[in-house]
Amino acid sequence: MDVTIIIDSLPSLLKATLMTILLAAISIIIALVLGFFAAIVRILKVRILNGIATAYVSIIRGTPLLVQIFVIYYGLPQIGISLDPISSGVVALSLNAGAYLSESFRAAILAVDNGQMEASLSMGMTYSQALRRIILPQSLRIAIPTLSNTFIVLIKDTSLVSVITVTELLQMSSLIIAKTFEPLTIYLLAAAIYWILITFFTTILDKLEVRTSKYLVR
């Protein structure tokens, strides 16, 4: 293993890591919003939207992410929707993570004891007041561990976007290897960067979980 190769390739790899972070960050934000609304729509059984949300979750969870990326990037232009590689990646990753997050949110909301809703309603709150003030704050805490899981998967899944020529961490690694012929060093370096990214992220979420659970400590 040659140390100079590491030093030489690190700047490009770190630059590509920024793309990975960008992809993950934008997709997480969109996925959170999407997943939250899909969960609420299904819990409230909103007419029509409930059916759409259920179908969405079923289709996304029932097909490989790689196929979803191909449909969006290579398939959609055939019906006049052409997205550049980065946008295609963001759309695919957000739709994918959103479906999983909606299931997390839904389970977390349903996990709050029914007595909480009854106590809120018995005071004269509306259903949405009870949801907003009493149920959702408690379900957030319940949801954090599964949210954390989905976030980890999302960060790793950004590597799949390399197949549609987005120069993120994995794509950049392959490009460097094509020049240096050092697959072990470079791929291990990429793996290390993914690991640091994910560890950093999970630490933050673990802290958040502890903070939101404070009220349960006797």
């Binding site: 007595g115 909480q116 106590a119 009220y215």
Partner: peptide, 12 residues
Amino acid sequence: FVFQSFNLFPHK
């Protein structure tokens, strides 16, 4: 209404 299981809001 007072419940058997109290049903206080645990996060408050």
